[in-house]
Design a protein around this nucleic acid. Sequence first.
DNA 1: TTCATAAATGAATGAATATTCATTTATATT
DNA 2: AATATAAATGAATATTCATTCATTTATGAA
Lengths: 196, 196
Amino acid sequence: MRTRDVNKENIIQEKAIEMIVKEGLDGFSMQKLAKAANVSPATLYIYYKDRDDLITQIATTVSHRLMETSLKGMHPKMSFADGLELQWKNRMEFFFKHPLDVEFIEQIRYMPTYDSVRDSIRQNFGDVLGRFVHNAINRGELQPLPFEVYWSIAFAPLYQLIKFHAQGSSPASEKFSINDDIVNQTLQLVIKALKP
Amino acid sequence: MRTRDVNKENIIQEKAIEMIVKEGLDGFSMQKLAKAANVSPATLYIYYKDRDDLITQIATTVSHRLMETSLKGMHPKMSFADGLELQWKNRMEFFFKHPLDVEFIEQIRYMPTYDSVRDSIRQNFGDVLGRFVHNAINRGELQPLPFEVYWSIAFAPLYQLIKFHAQGSSPASEKFSINDDIVNQTLQLVIKALKP
DNA sequence: TTCATAAATGAATGAATATTCATTTATATT
DNA sequence: AATATAAATGAATATTCATTCATTTATGAA
């Protein structure tokens, strides 16, 4: 039998992300994607059940890549400050290497479509993070907090920084630059906030 | 001459927000909106130049309403803790009164479409907030921080809490409840982080 | 080389899309 | 009451959309 062209699959993913970041999910269509990827529209339906499945599958793939990078070098027994800093650093590294991927995720993160992606992340990576937090609390390095409070303080600021950066292209707004200083300064404030 | 039906304009806005929250910008169309608002599609083009203008205009209106509520009772000379708490409370009040409006804004907040809305907010409300922050720094109640760092710590956590709440309907995920306790606890951590 | 099979295609379908336009309707002014 | 004017309309247009299908193509196994 004829073999699947792996390269073709990658191009489809890449172009889809590019298009969605540039024009939004709104202006994204299967035919435009097919043209951009030099592929017949019908080919897309070999790889993906339908439009929705295409978006969900790509989002899941990218999210998993992001989470894997984010947890690189993490041990559940690390000190809280070290572990949080490592996660921030890892996420920033991913962001600088794959800015489009991150913008793509941020774009669909608040849509109904993303629900299943979130569940998949929780299933695959929830354990390590849960143990890390648990240990930090036991050692008195982290306040015991409801999950929502913890996450809102620990990661929402990082994502806000990333968004500032992504919005830097707006014409009338001043440009924001995310550099290591900005990120570190914010991280230190976050660690300070979470210390018991 | 025939007078414009103000009620009609409100219904159009309301239905548009409802539809976009429920189906996303993606599944939103002028014809569906016209039907939902009991109006001819052509009527929409009396009020709005085109689809994009409709979305931008409604987003601007809602954002301004949110900002006005958020600044209710604010004096630039307030203590930082009081001022920040007031803004959080005001925003939460708006959120509980108009949850759809907030979800609508969150939905388009990260799209290219929103750039002009952001600029309009800055033009109309940037001054009061700027003076408030300036005074707080002068009195030593707030660290002098780059704007990105300040905003990431001061407000990103609140918006994350709101998003958690909005996502509570996801079937496989646990439900999150935002109550006053959660919000207050987070706010106290934020104030602690920002204190010199 | 032959065969079986999944990959890949291009063209086609019907539904839905944004927008326009000639016409009608309501009202404020005269 | 008559008029002028902007609001409001419904039908129409051309375009774009997601998806399908009969057909062709490439390749691993025989």
